[in-house]
Amino acid sequence: MAGDTPQPTGSGRRVKITQESVVTAIAALLFVVFSIFLNNFLTQGNILALLKNVAILGTLATGMGFIVVGRGIDLTMVAVMVVGVAFAIWLTTLGQGFFGAIVIGGGLVTACGLVTGLLIAVAEIPPIFATLAMASVIYGGGRVAFSSDVLYAPANVAWLSFIGSGTFLGLPASVAIFLALAALVAAFLRLTRFGRFVYATGDNPHAARTMGLPTRPVLVAQYIVAALIAYLAGILLTGLVSSINTRLYNSTLIYDVLLVVVLGGISLSGGQGGVRNVLVGTVLVGILINGMTILNFSYTSQNLIKSVILLAALALDAAINPRDEQTSQSGDI
């Protein structure tokens, strides 16, 4: 990576239409259309609500994007998010201080990510399969432990209420935290050696391994990081609504996250895209969900519309980035 890449010369250089720019254009268009035709869209309250919703979705999508770049997928994120935070809150009901409980919850979440990562990296179970099953295991385990679906955060924790209602440089604190995380992950992916490893592993796992990259530790670390990011999203959510509803696991939130990532232009075949794609995807999906809510679409029809869009995005991804038969693994379905 030390050598400079030769600049294309000659007059044949054209403006390349990337998925990222198309999505940005659509998001802008949608924003304009909604602003003009929807009465309550361009109000301060709605924009604030939009941004706060986007913060959760974006945080989760950053974690998911981090995984997808390495040719993985993590369907455990929502389960980790709700169970991790619920566990921490449950600890406070046993008399544990809130901050301490959050740290212990972080330990649990790390363990979940470690197990998932080991299943994928060492046991070589296809990631989508391992995470689907692990999601069921994590959520089942959580449900066994907590008697109620909704756990309320302890009142008067200053920093938690700051996340919910505070502002930082004019931005809601949750949005600022999301942006900070995005910047951190972007810097990590682009500037560190580990980030390069993630891209290399995603591009061609066999080649990366043959070259001597520590692909297994990289994979495990990725899933641990994703689990921690999911946990952070859970804390943001708790700050916003002062409680965590474990039933969120049964919603289609994880598919919204996938929608953000795939729509944003991170190919599921790995090795491409970055945090910028997550940002534009988040904005588009956020606007879409917000608009549909204002239009008073039912929950079910929203699901239907989002799923159809996701399907279309997946079809587009399959057409643009066809699967490479040489590097796809057996059972990678």
Binding site: I128, N303, L311, A318
Partner: peptide, 13 residues
């Protein structure tokens, strides 16, 4: 398309 993800989405649809 990828069978796993595609059918997961058609499941929701």
């Amino acid at each position: 398309m990828r069978a796993f993800l595609t059918t997961l989405v058609t499941l929701i649809i």
